[in-house]
C-alpha cells in the first residue's frame, strides 16, 4: 500500500449487490487481477452477495448492482440500496435490461415455477424480470453479458476522479472497424447484429469470424426497420431473428419492438 493511500481514512465506500443473475458480472470485478490491490487501496469494498444475509446500512459512495429484480423482496432491497447509495451503477444485461430471465415476461411465470420446482408454493416470484432502472433512478448503466473488465475499471476510475466515464453508445461496427476486423457480413454473408448493438466489447465476435449476437443490447441509434431485412438477406427466418433478439437483452425496449416488427411481418406474409 502506498504511503499516500495508507494515510487515507476517508476512502470511498464501494458496495457490490446481487440480484437475479449468474454472477458473471461480479466475477468480472474479481477478474481485474492486476488492479485489485490498487482498487482495495483506493476504496473500501463491501460485498452483499446473499439477498437475505446482510443489508449494508451505508452510506456507500458507489453501488454496483448486478442482476435483475424478480421477487417482491428484491423490490424492497433495490429501494434500500438507492437510499443508502450516492451513485448507483447497474452492471450487466440483467441489471440493465432484465437478462435472459426476462423471457418470463412473455410467458406465464407460474407455469414455469410449477414445471421447475418440486414445491412451487415455496417460491415467491414476480411475473416479470426487470432492470434496476425500472424501480429506482440509476446513475449509470454498464452494458454487456458479461460486462467488459476494462469498462468496469473505467467506471470506477472515472467515479474516483469525478469525471464522466468514456462509454460510447455507438454501434459495435465502430469498434470492429477500429480493430481492423474484416466485416463478416460483407465478406462472408454472415448475419451480424453489430450495426444495432451497443459498443463496449471491442467487437469480440467478429474478430473470431462470427456475427455479433447483441449481448451489449441496443446502441444509441438503432434502425431496426432498415436492419431486419439484412438478417433475412443473410439467411435468417423470422424464428431465427426472434431467437437472436430474445436473449440476454430481450426486454430492452428496442429489441422488444424489433421482435414486434418481425412478428407483424410474419402475419403480413400469411
Amino acid at each position: 500500500m502506498t504511503a499516500r493511500a495508507a494515510e487515507r481514512t476517508d476512502r470511498p465506500r464501494l458496495a457490490v449487490w446481487k440480484f437475479a443473475s449468474c454472477d458473471g458480472c461480479q466475477l468480472t470485478l474479481l477478474d481485474c487481477e492486476d488492479d485489485l490491490l490498487t482498487l482495495a487501496e483506493q476504496v473500501e469494498v463491501s460485498y452483499f452477495l446473499e439477498a437475505s444475509s446482510a443489508l449494508g446500512t451505508g452510506p456507500y459512495d458507489l453501488s454496483l448492482v448486478d442482476g435483475s429484480v424478480t421477487t417482491p423482496e428484491d423490490e424492497a432491497r433495490v429501494r434500500h440500496i438507492r437510499e443508502v447509495s450516492r451513485h448507483v451503477v447497474a452492471i450487466g444485461a440483467c441489471a440493465t435490461a432484465g437478462g435472459i430471465q426476462a423471457l418470463r415476461n412473455y410467458a406465464d411465470a407460474a407455469e414455469f415455477r410449477a414445471a421447475v420446482y418440486a414445491r412451487p408454493e415455496y417460491i415467491e416470484t414476480l411475473a416479470t424480470s426487470t432492470p434496476i432502472s425500472a424501480h429506482v433512478p440509476v446513475d449509470l448503466e454498464l452494458r454487456g453479458c458479461p460486462i467488459d473488465r476494462g469498462q468496469l475499471l473505467e467506471v470506477i476510475a472515472a467515479h474516483l476522479t469525478g469525471r464522466k466515464p468514456d462509454l460510447p453508445g455507438h454501434s459495435v461496427c465502430f469498434e470492429c472497424k477500429r480493430r481492423g476486423t474484416t466485416c463478416v457480413v460483407v465478406a462472408r454473408g454472415t448475419p451480424c447484429l453489430g450495426p444495432v448493438t451497443h459498443a463496449g466489447c471491442g467487437a469480440l465476435c467478429p474478430a473470431y469470424g462470427r456475427g455479433c449476437y447483441g449481448c451489449f443490447g441496443p446502441s444509441n441509434s438503432t434502425r431496426f426497420p432498415t436492419f431486419l431485412p439484412l438478417l433475412r438477406r443473410d439467411g435468417m427466418d423470422t424464428l431465427d431473428i426472434v431467437r437472436e433478439l430474445r436473449t440476454f437483452n430481450t426486454a430492452a425496449p428496442e429489441f422488444e419492438e424489433a421482435v414486434g416488427l418481425q412478428e407483424a411481418g410474419r402475419e403480413d406474409r400469411g
Binding site: 473505467e154 474516483l160 454501434s171 466485416c183 450495426p195 434502425r223
Partner: peptide
Amino acid sequence: TARCLTCGNCTMVCPTCFCTTAEDVTDLTG
C-alpha cells in the same frame, strides 16, 4: 436515410475521413 443504419462503417473505411475524438484515461489512483 431509410436504408442507412447509421453504423459508421463508411466513415471508418473512407481513406480521407479524419475525424477523431479525445479520450481521457485516469488510473485508479488518479
